[in-house]
Design a protein around this nucleic acid. Structure first.
Lengths: 231, 231
DNA sequence: TCTGATATGAGAGCACCGCTCTCGTTGTGA
DNA sequence: TCACAACGAGAGCGGTGCTCTCATATCAGA
């Protein structure tokens, strides 16, 4: 009589409990940060034995990895949505919107931001599963950069310096192909770095004495940034 | 007979043990990172009871704060030395040297860098003692910016936008006075953010797939940066 | 110089942590 | 139906931060 017997009761309950555990863990994360996340506390929240949680996540680190993936995806989604809400031809507007969306998400979810863009968990080196979600934001930013450069660039500069720059950006050029010149690509990466620098410095408290209106300053900086990378 | 009786045996031993504890803690920090720092392990290293350590640092957090201060000072010193080694009139060279020195220090002391520029320890909000050492690097950078602008700027732009920018940078302008225009000051902060963005992204593993030669790229970016803020 | 206050170290102990193991129970596929 | 695998609970191990008590070593003042 049960309608979704195909999957089986056990599998469904397992899936539900898995996200329930992550939900509880996220709630704890929002309060105490990554360092304060405790498997036992999560188990207590859910009214189950601490040992039972280990049926779902083999270790605290594995649970943390799941949260990291979710955070990457959440941030990526927010940025992509901000991008999609703009006219595709308004490259400048898209860039600014994405930057603002990212900052807002970071402010709304500081611990999740810290989880993915703060100090990496010690002894933790980005398992395969995190790579893909992590690229969503850079890809979104790069896409605007590419699309703002539909007409082919003036021929790339030659010379040793240009070659070395091209080489140092090897991985990215594999993604962008010939659509963006290395020097312009470098400009994009610099903008990416500045974006995260701005958000991180603000979020981690380094603007405390100095920048009194971070939001206004961020907007100002993002527009300067846009002037630089988008013609 | 003892030569430095003025201070007292107790005080001297205390001072020595204090730095000994910090030394052991730093060694642990370099291996396991901030999250792995354990007061008990430090005590074990020094062959003393764990409770005895609490006579020197009231809590793990307080020990961490001491390490943070030391890290700020170490980084600040390295940057200041790089600055001092250059001709004072070579503003561009000074900026580039400081940036390189900072990156090198970060690479040599990743956990200490993460301690001060990564995610803040949860529930931790920069005690007074950390503020001063934390300003050393921004001050050093700002100083070059100021000194590269000895001749007074063309009169500052007027208007609402300029006023708001000036206001958003209130704290900094209190430091620089009228020597730097708000818009140029903003440029400096943006450069500061990009600098830390570049180092953090590299150090925290976000360049893994994409930038194959981070050192070369950093140098390239820093020179671009210098072009932007130094005339 | 003697003595009372004080600073220090050691040890036991509390509540918490991650993680493992065992042992019943309960769905599941053959 | 039945053997098996998945599961939850509980106990337990070694670790953590931190507190308390108690003995001892140092110091400052009479």
């Amino acid at each position: 009589m049960s309608e979704t017997k195909a999957i089986g009761v056990r599998a469904r309950v397992r899936a539900e409990l898995t996200i329930e555990i992550k939900r509880a863990a996220k709630a704890q994360l929002a309060v105490d940060g990554a360092a304060g996340l405790s498997l036992r506390a999560v188990a207590r929240d859910l009214g189950m034995a601490s040992s039972a949680v280990y049926r779902y996540f083999a270790s605290r680190e594995e649970l943390l990895t799941a949260l990291i993936i979710d955070a990457y995806n959440a941030a990526g989604l927010v940025v992509e949505q901000a991008d999609a809400a703009r006219d595709r031809s308004d490259h400048r507007g898209r860039f600014v919107a994405m930057a603002r969306a990212l900052r807002q998400w970071a402010i709304d979810n500081p611990h999740e931001y810290a989880l993915i863009y703060g100090s990496p968990v010690p002894g933790y080196d980005a398992p395969e599963d995190t790579i893909d979600p992590a690229t969503r934001i850079p890809v979104a930013l790069l896409t605007v950069l590419i699309e703002s450069r539909t007409q082919p660039r003036s021929r790339s500069k030659a010379g040793k310096e240009a070659d070395e720059l091209r080489q140092s950006l090897d991985g990215l050029i594999a993604f962008t192909g010939d659509l963006v010149s290395p020097s312009h690509l470098a400009l994009g990466v610099e903008a990416w770095a500045e974006l995260f620098g701005l958000i991180s410095l603000e979020l981690f408290g380094h603007f405390k004495n100095g920048i009194t209106d971070p939001e206004f300053f961020f907007d100002h900086a993002v527009h300067t940034l846009a002037d630089r990378i988008i013609p």
